[in-house]
Amino acid sequence: MIKDLSDIFKKASSIKEKKKLVVMAAHDEHVLDAVAVAVEKNIVDAILVGDRKKINEIAEKHNLNFDKCEIIDEKDNDNAAELSIKLIHEGEGQILMKGSLDTASYLRPIIKSKGGLRTGDLLSSLAIFKIDGYHKIWGLTDGGINIAPDMHEKASIINNAVFFFRALGIEKPKVAVLGVVERVRSNMQSTMDAAMLSKMAQRGQIKNCIVDGPLSFDNAISRQSANFKEIESDVAGDADIIVVPNIESANVLYKSIVHLAKVSPGAVIVGASVPVILTSRADTDIIKLNSIALAASVEF
């Protein structure tokens, strides 16, 4: 059972057949830093698809060792993208990671309905935290892909996150759908969406999880707070997955935890046939490494 992010590293390095990480347009120094550490820690093997000359220069400059990694020389980013996707399709790689190309160019070939990697209705971002004072790891979704998801899209976001949590070994994750308040307000769509998603889980339209909402953030992570508000809920104070109403609230919540609580999460994009890593330049090396470990520790 995974209780802490360190358990994710243990799980990743104990997997018999080491996973191969395909880095699309790998000539990016921050990404290569993280990949080198992950390879050294024996969490993954890597295939670097990108400009070999630049990769070697970065390796030399940063004193990185890619002797164990396959490097496929491809200077053109579009070709690198196509090749990376092909490697995943052929089963050569089991994790995809973004290198030196913009996010849209990275996601386009993944999302594409023909020849892409998408398995669900949509891709969504899932960040996994372990915070002092909360008894287990928990996921925050969707922090980066869907801007203002409607109810149907939120159901898909939940499905994606539940799928990943089950891959981590949490059989029936508890999902809190956040609103500003724990009551239904007809002038706050997020509270109505939350109520409907709860019922969808109860009726088996969203499977393998328990959903409750609307819950405010404190109700979701603190039983005491839920008791104070007299909320009867299987999820309150014990949430595994927290679904936020929109990208702004996700972003603010994510950054407040990272910057003020000084916690480093791991994050993956879910909804594709393999874990997809999309870290931003602003993310620290440890977040990038956590993300690789997270992706390496699950079997889809």
């Binding site: 239904v184 109520a195 409907m196 709860s198 019922k199 009726r203």
Partner: peptide, 18 residues
Amino acid sequence: VINERMPATMHAAILSKM
């Protein structure tokens, strides 16, 4: 079940939660 094309189902789910 909840069906977005049937508002009655959405109202019903919300009323349950209320």
